[in-house]
């Protein structure tokens, strides 16, 4: 079982966390202005890369705070965790 470093609580067991999918996908400012296709892209489409992926996590069974993480989808290694209001950090 993986340890996930919550930015507020430190490393905790992965069962305490809830996965929230791709990070940096913002709710559109004006959904009504979007075409059906643009809206469908927001609702249904997410990246699925092999390698580093910025994604959202919530420490559901802990501090209940959401945060972002860059995780390698091949090794599951977490390269970085960062707050929602922070830019995606540069990772190698």
């Amino acid at each position: 079982m993986q340890l996930i470093p919550c930015p507020w609580c430190g490393p905790r067991e992965e069962v305490e966390f809830h996965y929230g999918g791709q990070a940096h996908v913002s709710y559109p400012a004006d959904p009504a202005a979007l075409s059906d296709e643009e809206w469908a892209r927001f609702v249904f489409f997410r990246d699925n890369p092999r390698g580093p992926f910025a994604e959202r996590w919530s420490h559901t069974a802990g501090c209940r705070r959401w945060f972002n993480a860059v995780r390698d989808t091949r090794s599951y290694e977490l390269h970085a965790v960062y707050r929602l209001d922070e830019e995606r950090p540069v990772t190698t």
Binding site: Y27, R65, W66
Partner: peptide
């Protein structure tokens, strides 16, 4: 969960 997610991630 749903309320907290929107409050934290979209409408802080």
């Amino acid at each position: 969960d749903w309320i907290e997610e929107w409050l934290q991630t979209e409408w802080p």
